[in-house]
Design a protein around this nucleic acid. Structure first.
Lengths: 253, 253
DNA sequence: TAAATAGTGTCTTTGAGACAGTATCAT
DNA sequence: ATGATACTGTCTCAAAGACACTATTTA
């Protein structure tokens, strides 16, 4: 890796054309944290890491780390993901979630974190790499059980879940959980597991195949789900879903 | 992988129970910026300030400033708003928009800014105070004309507008533009100006009065809009609008 | 054959869009 | 009276919910 550009970390000493930052600034440490979700073993799961240092030693936490000089925020997010989980490919979906900067959220000092939401299919999330020993999947329903998540990560996780649940209503983001080629039933299962709700297979089929640009039929079929062969689809160009898919009241027998 | 040695910013000198921030951190300056929108003179307008210092001296910019020690992000946003515009009351609606941290977005050094979206009625936005001389309203349609906005504020403004336009679809946020008591026609005018679209008065009336918890009738009437007296309403408890108000394709003759 | 899943069609209900008609003010 | 705006009602159409029926595989 080439050495990073030399920006003086002392931001107050960085004049440019006579303009400099005011000398009485609070310097904050900036980190990124990730809510990486996937569907595996018939459940919505989130990637957690076990903290190897204080504070919150040995407690589960969202993967993340400090932003480096000259590094963009999203760039830092995918780098941390690769380092902590050995993820080769960037996640299929990545978006900024929110920024958390309550003064006392980190006992070490002022640390502000920019949280990202990432969605990926199971095949792209092998968990194997340098620090990978400490990373593991946890069902979102029980992620905060036992020793609670470090820092304010329980809040960040809750916000990420709510974002994911609402995002798949009006966008094609749910396909980010799927393999490159998938059946309508597999996509429906994603919705059901993310929403904890049952959807009518026939109405769902009509909705997703009837929305222009959402799904692209490949012409090929699979029997991997059992029963009559189902057509395989790829995700289409449409990123917004209009009209939106309506989320039922959560009810999964 | 080795990190270049760098002078410790003072955030690293904040030990707590043996835990300290790593010494090779990049310290960043953290600021907040505001997209404060209001409806006045029959147009959607945004509050801008004229920059009094380099860089971008004399260019229009979004109001904002650096976060102080021990200060929460939203807290910093309302403080900056009060300082730069003399706004007494906090805005009726305030939400975090997004965080912008491209390395070169500020020529003075690494400055990351957390942007907020604020909505307020005209009555609460008098622009009178300490630094108020430099602040002014600009119609959003022409805000980026002439000398462009400083930094990446044109992007932030565009994101804020899009957020406001979509937010009023599925939430009661549009009432934040209204006075405490308002008529259905006044609320409709808000939607029309924010969306640049014409809405059918009768269908709009049916929609907003038929959605439980959205509007609370006061029993009193006004003739300030001319014609038959219109009932005055207050905003209700409902913060989400379901089903959503559908945004037509922008078309205002 | 039965069982399982894929896909199509049909009926009902909800709600949005379009627009007629009446009500109550100012002038 | 006229004109303006407030409000109610009615018709039509699009789309969601519920569910019957047929199609094609494996066991």
């Amino acid at each position: 890796m080439p050495s990073p550009p030399e920006p003086s970390p002392d931001t107050t000493a960085h004049p440019d054309g006579g303009a400099a930052l005011p000398p009485d600034l609070v310097a904050v440490a900036l980190s990124v944290d990730l809510v990486l979700l996937t569907v595996r073993e018939e459940r919505l799961q989130v990637l957690l890491v076990r903290r190897g240092i204080e504070p919150f030693l040995d407690r589960p936490a969202l993967p993340g780390g400090f932003v480096r000089p000259g590094e963009d925020l999203a760039e830092a997010a995918v780098r941390e993901l690769a380092e902590e989980t050995g993820l080769r490919h960037p996640p299929a979906h990545l978006e900024q979630l929110a920024t958390y900067g309550t003064p006392q959220r980190d006992p070490r000092g002022r640390v502000v974190t920019v949280a990202f939401l990432a969605l990926a299919p199971q095949s792209r999330t092998p968990i194997a790499g340098t620090d990978a020993a400490a990373s593991h999947w946890a069902p979102v329903a029980t992620a905060d059980d036992g020793p609670g998540l470090a820092f304010d990560h329980a809040t960040i996780l809750a916000d990420g879940l709510e974002r994911a649940r609402s995002k798949i209503e009006y966008s094609a983001a749910a396909t980010a959980f799927c393999e490159p080629e998938f059946t309508v039933a597999e996509l429906r299962r994603i919705y059901e597991l993310v929403w904890s709700a049952r959807l009518d297979p026939r109405n769902f089929h009509r909705k997703v195949t009837g929305t222009a640009g959402f799904l692209v039929p490949t012409g090929r079929f699979t029997t991997r789900d059992g029963g009559r062969p189902a057509e395989l689809y790829r995700r289409g160009d449409a990123s917004v879903l209009y009209p939106a898919m309506l989320r039922p009241v959560p009810r999964l027998p």
